[in-house]
Design a protein around this nucleic acid. Sequence first.
DNA 1: CATCTATATCGATGATTGTCAATCTGCATG
DNA 2: CATGCAGATTGACAATCATCGATATAGATG
Lengths: 119, 119
Amino acid sequence: MERMNSLQTLEPAVDASCCVPSERPALNAEEAQQKALIFKALADPNRLRLLSIVKAGESGGSCVCDLTEPLDLGQPTVSHHLKILVEAGLLHREKRGTWAYYSLIPGALDDVAGILATL
Amino acid sequence: MERMNSLQTLEPAVDASCCVPSERPALNAEEAQQKALIFKALADPNRLRLLSIVKAGESGGSCVCDLTEPLDLGQPTVSHHLKILVEAGLLHREKRGTWAYYSLIPGALDDVAGILATL
DNA sequence: CATCTATATCGATGATTGTCAATCTGCATG
DNA sequence: CATGCAGATTGACAATCATCGATATAGATG
């Protein structure tokens, strides 16, 4: 299970040869599952709020203690949601001393938008 | 429950007065729930494939019978997934004779991308 | 009207998920 | 080393969800 998605490598150069969009043959089961994982991560109100707060507080990242209160959720629950967002390739986690700081991975949300555009 | 989302009216002119992005105060619980509904609709591999197939077959829409086989799912299950996509404001359903034709709502996926961009 | 066909709805079931309380880990500081 | 604190992990439980088989609805056609 470790390190599930990377978003960066999700569309690994569809065609190494050359150009032409080459008749996209409609998502196969495997691709669909990959991409669904990312949308699953976004499919919870509290996780959307976490992303929103982390994005708004862009300046070294937000620590869990800052995120627990506004959501009115227990600390373990927030940790759990954050883990899902990290595994989806949307957030980055950095431990500094006792605290863990979470920050948006640059471009990650744009990549998701790209997935939608190329469905 | 009827007619849940419209996507078009989800961002109802954030600010009627004028300009300035006006310090977005991080998703509140209600907005988050609304938006999560849309991502929930996208958070299933088979629904992603349905969207993909419907999008690819843009020419009057795809009927359920065309969608059942490629997904290898029962007809009731496909109908169920399609309903969820319609309720999320992503697909349009049109009954012609005995058949039901589904088509992408123009701009709907772009609107979702917009939600991501303004998180 | 009887029948056929395409699709929708219903009821049940197994799987997944969100949440919490309890516990564990690891860093920091007295 | 003992204590305290931030955060992660675990185990349990209720709620939600995806799927299916059976059935219902509603056009079309004989």
